[in-house]
Nucleic acid binder design. Structure first.
Lengths: 200, 200
DNA sequence: TCGTTGCGAAACTCAGACGTATCGAAATTA
DNA sequence: TAATTTCGATACGTCTGAGTTTCGCAACGA
């Protein structure tokens, strides 16, 4: 065994360009981030923006959906570090991460797709939810449960309902709040309002 | 003036079929309700489902967007009657209306479009938001303001934030809650959880 | 050097949908 | 009855984009 890379013998011939592959995925995400729906997304537009031939795309993915699945799979959910000092601080950290992401276009992919194409591409959605939504949901759940255990939150709090309150309120702001970037103190205000409740 | 309808003389010839017009609009809404995005929506599918010729559509609307605008405009926002007895009851009434609507397909049009096509069809969205979203938002705002005035809600409550909490939490449930119909007591639970807050 | 494979570009076939035109029949007014 | 307009159906030309093929060149192993 002379030049075997991780046990797989490299076949003869010119190797596939990693640069092209990256460019294809980047362009796909860019187009989605610009608000393009999956039906409007064309392989030709992707190829053109990535500066590659359609051949190069079809050699790697057999159709549009496969490409999009792979492209979205590269979107990690870089959860913020949670200090664990208090529920309030951890919630603010989680919510503020959502706020920051809603500002920069790449992360808008997540929302755009999640909000719009759920019904139409179930196969895609399954993978996508597992990869991008679940980790956040889980992190939020754990913070809430820890808060109940520590006594910082009401002992009779419904965890699922609390998740809905936190995520929903933030989601509402990023979708229907005033245009432009969300104010930097939004996370804090959201969390404090939810903690305090609307009644006295 | 023998047979003038509202001052406009009826021209000679076969009159346009109101039934066809209704069927076209219904079919359009049906297809949207089934989760079809505006790009996937085809005039030919609408015509076929409505049992009319394409001619009959193009005689009335010059393109797809015009048709969709008119179709969505027929979706009223039948706000529930508000008893005014208490903020809690009024909020439950508003939220429960959302819950019921999220179950029946016709009203899913509203959500599907509102969630997904906002960026892509701004002209359409403007009319649509004004017609379908604003009235609800306004009703909610008034209930909240009345509650603050009456002392039922915290005097330092941020009205915009409260709107986000209420709508957002319900939106989250209808989009990402467990599949199937939402439980009948959901509105009550949502409102009570929001009123009480998460902390002690 | 030679064989193999990937590259971008371009041409191609095929399907779907747009929007128009035409048809005979039906509905209405004069 | 005659003129007019709409009806649903269908055929049409056009365009867009999918996915394939071909081309000459580039990059790699042997």
């Amino acid at each position: 065994m002379s030049i075997q890379e991780t046990g797989t013998a490299r076949p003869a011939g010119r190797p596939r360009s990693e640069k092209a592959e990256k460019a294809i995925i980047e362009s796909t995400l860019d187009l989605i981030a610009e608000g393009m729906g999956l039906s409007d997304l064309t392989i030709e537009a992707i190829a053109s923006r990535a500066g590659v031939g359609k051949t190069t795309i079809y050699r790697r993915w057999s159709n549009k959906e496969d490409l999009v699945v792979d492209a979205l799979a590269t979107l990690k959910a870089p959860l913020p570090p949670l200090s664990g000092a208090s529920v309030r601080e951890d919630l603010i950290a989680l919510i503020d991460a959502m706020r920051q992401e809603s500002g920069h276009s790449r992360s808008r992919c997540v929302m755009n797709i999640a909000m719009s194409e759920a019904d139409r591409y179930p196969r895609l959605m399954e993978r996508f939810v597992k990869r991008a939504i679940e980790p956040r949901r889980e992190a939020l759940r754990m913070v809430i449960e820890r808060g109940i255990a520590s006594g910082e939150l009401r002992s009779d709090l419904d965890v699922g309902m609390a998740q809905a309150m936190v995520s929903g309120t933030m989601m509402w702001h990023s979708k229907w709040g005033p245009a432009g970037d969300l104010p930097p103190d939004l996370a804090e205000r959201v969390v404090d309002a939810l903690l305090a409740g609307m009644a006295h």
